[in-house]
Design a protein around this nucleic acid. Structure first.
Lengths: 150, 150
DNA sequence: AATATTAACTTGCATTTTGCAAGCTTTAAA
DNA sequence: TTTAAAGCTTGCAAAATGCAAGTTAATATT
């Protein structure tokens, strides 16, 4: 296709993503899942930024409704629930890593280590794959104990 | 560096970007600049999504304060102002194109043409460069008439 | 030179969303 | 059988948003 067409992106393509992610907290929830391994309500609630519990509940609900996140019972502990990213949610990794990279480049007080910055700069696609795989392993871990018990 | 470290991204790197972009309208303003060539207040105000004028004013101000956008007088028309993306703002192109791509992949009612979707899928970096160059040309155009007149 | 018009905001006010604290419900441990 | 933990829900004050109307400064018109 001619590159000319690639410039004809207009209105629609962003309204969908912004209806879902167009606020601070939704993004932070997904980041906490990916990078901090959060998968329980209380873990999100204890996050550094301090989400209000009602906002947290409504955002998790929205993410589940839109298919970015699934909710299931923790097989190890019936009074806990586990939240995990679906493939749809995982497909946001590149966007999020680019935003992290941008912050690293432009935030005068960034706390992103230079090694990671350099890694994102030179091996972006590899970083995406790495995060994806680490997350998959982590999710397995969340269910493994139960399997061992049975 | 070891990939292990790349997983240690924690809290900070996203709070900066989300403090600036953590709302629907800011993103849409930048998108309108990049893809629809908007550079005047009224053009943003007339945008399909319908920003309230006070919100628009506050968001443009914020973008200028954070250095993503510059404001200058239109050399052709002294009662108009021109808003343009800085390098810092342009560095968001990859993030935005990934979000567009995500929308194209996951919005059941997407209006993103398949050709563009495919282009983003196979030539992402090229698409980023293309958008960047088109934008630079367009900005030149905004000032050119004045140069011709003088 | 005086008046009208255009573009970019600003302001006031009603509505909506957020944030905080407290309470409720279900599950499991003691 | 009571106690506690985890995941929410509810009520209310504070902040952000959206809409309509007004203000200001730079042209264009008469």
């Amino acid at each position: 296709m001619s590159p000319k067409n690639s410039y004809k992106l207009t209105v629609c393509p962003m309204t969908y993503v912004l209806d879902i992610l167009g606020d601070k907290w939704t993004f932070l929830i997904i980041r906490d899942m990916l990078f901090k391994g959060c998968c329980r309500y209380q873990q999100f609630a204890d996050s550094d930024e301090g989400v209000a519990t009602n906002i947290l509940a409504s955002r998790l609900k929205k993410l589940v409704q839109h298919g970015l996140v699934t909710q299931c019972k923790d097989p190890n502990n019936g009074r806990q629930k586990l939240y995990h990213l679906t493939d749809k949610g995982l497909d946001l990794i590149p966007s999020i890593l680019h935003l992290v990279k941008w912050s690293g480049n432009h935030d005068p007080e960034t706390c992103l280590p230079e090694t990671i910055q350099a890694y994102l700069e030179s091996n972006f696609d590899q970083a995406v794959e790495y995060v994806r795989k680490e997350y998959a392993q982590m999710c397995q871990g969340n269910h493994q104990a139960a399997a061992t018990v049975e």
